Computed example of a mutant assay.
Amino acid sequence: MDTGLLIALLNPTIALALGAAFLVLWFHQRHRPYLAVLATSYCLSAPGFLFQYFTLPVGMVLTKLVSNICFTAAGCCLSSAIVARYGRRVPYVGIALTTGGGLAAFSWFMFVQPDLTWRILSMNFGFGALSLLVAAELRTVRGNGPTEKILFVLSLLSGLNFVVRTLIVVIAHGPFPSYDGFYGSSYWTTALLSHALLSLLIALSLFSAAALDVLKALKAETHTDPLSGLLNRRGFEERAALLLDQCAKAKFPVAMVLADLDHFKALNDQHGHAVGDRVIADFAAKLSFATGTRGAAGRIGGEEFAVLLPLCDLA
């Protein structure tokens, strides 16, 4: 097997492995649909690379079109999944314009005015614009944590890779008159290697984000009372300790309210535990609303509650 074929099979193999990995994650976390979209994205990019090297029975021209359609669909899925994972509204119009424009220009220079160099520039500029669009969406969340910042930087690097690298290589190499020698050119080699590296880095960042989601959910379960939705005793004590330390350092006032529900046992005995559970849940909702995000509210016993209010005095 020659070196060119090995390099050509590199990206499909990586893509299928990453797609399978994200699919396994989705099977165990069905409430996170963006994982299934990520799996679809990587699985779609695999035939895209394969059809660049191998020709379908329909002929080379239609094979290249199918390949770029796979790339376009994969790019749309990947960008949508990344944006959706962070709770942002997916910019479907922007995604359609960038990828659709690139694919339309590719088709023009394939069927109407055949020109391989402009086909290369059309698709790369479209994907570059898509990467920068994702970076713009992640700009507002890049300060939320290391994975957000890494994905933001990778989106910028991906945009520069598609645009700047393509321009530099095309200018240095000159126009491509045909596919003869194309798959041994510096453009194709750098495209494959840069795509493999960026795909791995983006996938690792997304795997890390998914792992952090699981850890956050597990922590929430161990610190949250399932009936009231408030912090349990352990969660409240940890949150209260942190708030008290912050208020002490800043010399802010802080107040604590302790409350319980009177005659709660009689209520359970007379109306049943289901009614008692509803009373606890309703009272907890009022406490949570009154506390807001600045303070901490917890259920520290059966019908006993505690609220810590920073920036509040006793009055």
Rank of each mutant, 00 (worst) to 15 (best):
T13F: 07
L154M: 05
G301I: 06
L167E: 09
L200C: 15
T166N: 08
L6Y: 10
K216L: 10
A81P: 08
R234P: 00
T147E: 14
R85A: 11
A104C: 11
Y34G: 07
A172W: 02
L212M: 10
N161M: 07
T99R: 10
S107H: 07
I168Q: 05
A196T: 04
F207M: 13
T222H: 04
L62K: 01
L10V: 13
G181W: 00
I82M: 06
S228P: 13
V169E: 11
R299N: 04
I202K: 01
F283T: 05
L198M: 05
T224M: 12
K286W: 02
A315Q: 14
F54C: 01
T140Y: 02
F236A: 03
P226Q: 08
I280W: 05
R294C: 06
A220I: 09
L65Y: 01
V134K: 00
P175S: 09
L160A: 15
L116V: 10
L138E: 07
I202C: 12
T99P: 06
R294N: 08
Y92K: 09
G159T: 10
F289T: 14
A290H: 13
A135W: 02
G295V: 06
E238D: 15
F49S: 01
G101V: 07
L121R: 15
G94K: 06
L44E: 01
H195G: 15
A255M: 02
A20K: 08
S186I: 09
L50K: 02
K251A: 10
A73R: 02
S155I: 09
S288K: 15
F27G: 15
T190Y: 04
L9W: 00
P33Y: 06
H273I: 07
L10D: 12
G87V: 14
A8E: 11
V37M: 03
A8Y: 01
P146A: 12
I14R: 01
G272H: 08
S80L: 04
F106Y: 14
D245E: 13
V141P: 03
G276D: 01
V93F: 09
L62Q: 04
D262Y: 04
F51D: 01
S131V: 03
G101M: 11
F305M: 08
L261M: 05
L200F: 13
I82W: 02
L103G: 08
V169Q: 01
R30Q: 13
L227D: 06
A274D: 14
R142S: 05
G143C: 04
K64V: 00
D180G: 10
V257I: 13
F236C: 04
R88S: 11
F289C: 09
P47R: 10
L308R: 03
D282G: 15
T224L: 10
W188C: 08
S208A: 12
L38N: 07
M110E: 09
L157P: 12
T99F: 12
L97S: 05
R278P: 01
V163R: 02
T166L: 05
A20N: 12
L133D: 01
D225H: 14
G298S: 09
G101D: 07
G302F: 12
F109M: 12
E238R: 07
L121T: 11
R32Y: 03
H173D: 15
F176W: 06
I171C: 03
L309G: 03
R142V: 10
L244V: 12
S228R: 06
T291I: 00
V307P: 06
H273P: 13
M256T: 10
L130E: 04
C77R: 07
L167I: 15
A36C: 14
V141G: 02
